[in-house]
């Protein structure tokens, strides 16, 4: 699968946030997007998924050469796109397992035994409590549980390309290691991945063979490079990259 973002301009509530982003992500590739607060990272993620509040002004988003701008969010998910929410939504009354079952069915998988096995494997891999699947979606979850539940969904739903919006924020060092390992495994299994992050620490837990780091500033990718780019930001900050 190939996700292409071409010369994308987007605004939120009349404010221009994305100003000409170009990015290509293939299956099995890892792309890390870093950038200062307000640089447009989350807006870019929402634009890819077609969430409300983001208005595309110019440019295109394509999957395997076809524009997805006219597709609804659920249709984009069915193509194989997945967004890990920075702040997952709580849904009272809907059990996590029932939600996963509905999502899996919607994406074409209907074998409950298979689903249960992948949930069980995911819970083990992420060192989560079994109880989580009985509870309502994200309700009463700790910050760490919410992040892990999003990654669990990624492991179970097996998207072709995942956009992970700050999967590491608010997590302790052990949880970052566990999540980093799970992401790396999915990427090595062929999933394309965009990781949005503020911190270099998750990079040390990611397999970086096919990795690229991008700096997003002022709604535009201003620099791309290897892991050393992230290390430079860690030392020097974004000052040298900020686009006026």
């Amino acid at each position: 699968m190939l996700l292409e973002i071409k010369d994308l301009y987007a605004e939120v509530e009349g404010r221009e946030i994305i100003n000409g982003v170009n990015l290509s992500v293939k299956s099995g590739e890892l792309h890390v997007i870093m950038g200062p607060n307000g640089s447009g990272k989350t807006t870019l993620a929402k634009a890819i998924m077609g969430l409300s509040g983001v208005k595309i002004k110019k440019g295109d988003i394509l999957v395997d050469g076809k524009s997805i701008l006219g597709l609804r969010t659920d249709e984009r998910a069915k193509l194989g796109l997945f967004l890990q929410y920075q702040i997952p939504v709580e849904i009272d009354g809907v059990s996590f397992l029932s939600f996963l079952n509905n999502a899996k069915s919607a994406l074409g998988g209907s074998d409950i035994k298979e689903l249960m096995q992948s949930v069980k494997d995911g819970i083990k891999e992420l060192a989560m409590s079994d109880e989580v699947i009985k509870r309502p979606v994200n309700l009463g979850f700790s910050g760490g549980e919410k992040k892990k539940s999003e990654i669990l969904q990624m492991l179970v739903l097996k998207p072709k390309i995942a956009i992970l919006d700050e999967p590491d924020s608010g997590l302790d060092i052990d949880a970052v290691r566990i999540i980093g390992k799970a992401i790396s495994k999915s990427v090595s299994d062929g999933m394309g991945c965009i990781v949005i992050t503020h911190y270099i620490r998750i990079l040390s837990h990611l397999e970086f063979k096919n990795g690229t780091v991008h700096i997003l500033s002022g709604g535009k990718i201003v620099k791309s490079g290897g892991k050393e780019l992230a290390e430079k930001i860690e030392k020097e900050g974004y000052a040298g990259f900020i686009k006026e």
């Binding site: 659920d74 998910a77 997945f82 939504v89």
Partner: peptide, 30 residues
Amino acid sequence: ISKEAIEYLMSRGIRESDSKKLILMGMLDK
């Protein structure tokens, strides 16, 4: 009905009408 919740469910491939139903049944199940 929560638009955020509908959108979250849709981001997992569930159609809008099915998302609404899931939320409503979630309220009524107990």
